[in-house]
Nucleic acid binder design. Structure first.
Lengths: 198, 198
DNA sequence: GCAAAGTTAGTATATATTCACTAACTAAAA
DNA sequence: TTTTAGTTAGTGAATATATACTAACTTTGC
């Protein structure tokens, strides 16, 4: 499964696609719009990608890679579980604020419903991240840092779910400064909640 | 804003639409599929609804009404804030397990993106519920039942966000019995988290 | 000179919607 | 009471548009 490096035009196409998704939603990711943005004709797109699905697969692979790197790197750090989770959430927020188009990718499962390959890819990423997060939480519980009166899997659901909604709420006013302040408050709240009381 | 009662055929169409959405996703809600399900031709649909958007608007109004009734009724009860929230989550889960098609409606914002009327309607519902929930939480904080070290709005985000993800995770195995057990565990976890410690 | 990247012109399919018309029923007029 | 006019809910055929994709030809850069 070697990642083929992309040609400049391919990168250009992917970037145009991400911009389209970001600005007008995944609905408007059409070959026509795509080619218009780049300034070539529709058939020219097919010189660089076999079909539209391949474009989406490339985007999802990119997303997967980024997301996986984020989560995996945290797992093996020698830090407390709570700090790991804080990092994770922070990095996640930062990644999304710096590339808002990815937000729409995460939330477009519904669109991929008829394309099993795409749906599988997205679910794979989500499941993987969920697994890592649960692992970190379990570790924290064993070290008595994270509360044990709630199962690790439920805590993971609460963390990921609330993070998702938080991102969604801020989707349209991503002014970096304000978002950073509110993001810090939010992450802090989660930390307070999961920390072992007593 | 008087609710026009619907004709039997209109009800039939709405129900067929909900079934379609529920079974094959909102993507497959086409006039063709709709008419096929009912057993009439496509143009006949237009004898009962002006256009496709009107069908969706009717569905969203239905959803709005149901959801609003759920939240509003809870607000004015003379119960503790935590009990109110528990009820709210319980009712929400129950409503969705009994009419799974509604789940897909909640999660189809992305599809409505180009149709401002629809997007507004969905956002309206979400904002309203969020407001009510925040109000209940604030009240609970004033009565020292809910923890005060986290703002009501952040707690609301955490509750709604995690509930949403929980629903999504269970979207495909809605076996009532198991879902009920897991749902109870989940709601209990939220209760533990928001309750005022000490 | 030739391979890569582009163009023009087209296809097939899907989708929402309109059009002209009809059968069955209902209310009004003679 | 029986025509007459009007309504309701349907049909088959057609239209406009969008979309992914293809075939055949041309330009361009090494």
């Amino acid at each position: 499964m070697i990642e083929q490096s992309q040609t400049p035009r391919q990168i250009e196409i992917i970037e145009a696609a991400l911009n389209l998704i970001s600005n007008e939603g995944i609905q408007s990711l059409t070959i026509k719009n795509l080619s218009k943005r780049i300034g070539i004709t529709e058939p020219a797109i097919y010189r660089h990608f076999e079909n539209k699905i391949q474009i989406l697969i490339t985007i999802l692979d990119l997303f997967k890679e980024k997301s996986k790197a984020l989560f995996d790197s945290e797992l093996y750090k020698s830090d407390s579980a709570i700090n790991k989770i804080e990092h994770l959430m922070n990095n996640h927020l930062q990644a999304l604020t710096s590339k808002p188009s990815l937000i729409n990718v995460i939330f477009s499962e519904e669109i991929f419903k008829n394309e099993k390959v795409l749906l599988d890819k997205i679910n794979e990423v989500i499941a993987h991240n969920y697994g890592i997060l649960t692992e970190i939480i379990t570790d924290g519980q064993q070290n008595k840092i994270i509360r044990e009166d709630i199962s690790a899997s439920i805590l993971a659901t609460i963390i990921m779910g609330s993070l998702r909604l938080f991102i969604k709420q801020w989707q349209f006013n991503l002014h970096k400064d304000l978002m950073e302040i509110e993001g810090a408050k939010f992450i802090n709240a989660v930390k307070i909640l999961i920390r072992n009381p007593q």
